[in-house]
Amino acid sequence: MSDVVLYDQQDRIVTITLNKPETRNALSKDLCEALVNAMKRADADAGVSCVVLAANGKSFSSGGNLHEIKAMTAEQNMTPLEIEKWYKTGIQRIPLTMAEISVPVIAAVNGHAIGAGNDLTTMCDIRIAGEDAIFAESFLRVGIIPGDGGAWLLPRIIGQARANQMLFTGEFIDARKALDYGLVSEVVENDKLLERAYELAEMVVGLPPLAIRKTKELVRTAQSVTLKENLDQAALFQGVLQQLDDHREAIDAILEKRKPVFKGA
């Protein structure tokens, strides 16, 4: 695993940490590749039930690496087709990967989450923020558009009107406004951010592992199918889950007033 993204597993929780504080965790090509690989690794491990996405340094992510973006035309003279390929083989792999994985991801947002950094938070299932967190859709400030799915993701989370305001003004919003917008679900003291993220992760992993992943899949596909199709998928999943030992253990534990012991089967 590349040292620009750290991977640590404790029981059923994996912490994936952006680790380029010298660039405020700008999403350079190497970081994008390492993040995709880390997410796929966690998802492929049946022993993982939750991911905490965190960042070292003063910022969650400052967005795209402006030096790389500038070099495309100022130094490398890349054609429009070459730039298109750069996005498709680079940063766009992150939202596509995040949309495919079945393990839930909790974003612990510290400091700035700007541009693509803000969009990275929207790819996560749960977002909590430290009191110093700052969010922005800042692409127009540098004369480009969200190339990483932000225009698709953000309106689905905070609504079209507020998303348009962020997208068309590039304004910076603090953690409290992000909470009001619904961009994050909680704001906590800065020094309690990871502690709270792990509290939430522990709540997730205390539930039946396969049911956790099927719930995420059901929620994800609900964005693009009809109610009838989502109900059909739910019925199919239930037919599988209700045959599992974990389902029977969950009910028995409730009836017997004890803590359940799940085996992922």
Rank of each mutant, 00 (worst) to 15 (best):
V5C: 02
V5P: 09
L6F: 02
Q10G: 06
R12K: 13
I16Q: 02
I16N: 03
A26M: 13
D30W: 00
L31G: 05
C32S: 14
V36A: 10
N37Y: 04
A38S: 14
D43M: 03
A44C: 04
D45F: 05
V52A: 01
A55Q: 04
N56C: 09
N56P: 03
F60H: 02
S62V: 12
G63E: 11
E68K: 06
E68T: 03
I69R: 13
A71P: 05
T73V: 14
E75V: 11
Q76C: 03
M78R: 13
T79H: 10
L81P: 01
K88P: 00
K88N: 07
G90Q: 01
G90S: 09
Q92G: 07
R93K: 14
I101D: 00
V103D: 12
P104M: 13
A107Q: 10
A107D: 09
A108L: 08
V109Y: 04
G111H: 04
I114G: 01
A116E: 12
N118T: 12
D119I: 13
T121N: 12
C124E: 00
D125E: 09
I128V: 08
D132L: 08
F135V: 06
E137C: 03
F139C: 05
V142Q: 10
G143H: 09
I145T: 12
I145Y: 13
G149E: 00
W152Q: 06
L154G: 00
Q165D: 15
Q165M: 05
F168K: 14
F168R: 12
T169G: 13
G170D: 01
F172S: 08
R176N: 14
D180W: 00
D180G: 07
Y181H: 07
Y181P: 05
Y181W: 05
G182V: 02
V188H: 02
E189A: 14
D191G: 02
A197V: 03
A197Q: 01
Y198H: 14
E199L: 10
M203P: 01
V205R: 00
I212E: 05
V219M: 15
T221Q: 12
S224Q: 12
S224D: 11
L227I: 12
N230C: 11
D232E: 15
A234H: 10
G239R: 07
L241F: 08
Q243W: 03
D246W: 02
E249A: 11
A250R: 10
D252L: 12
A253W: 07
A253P: 05
I254Y: 09
L255C: 09
K257W: 08
P260L: 06
F262M: 10
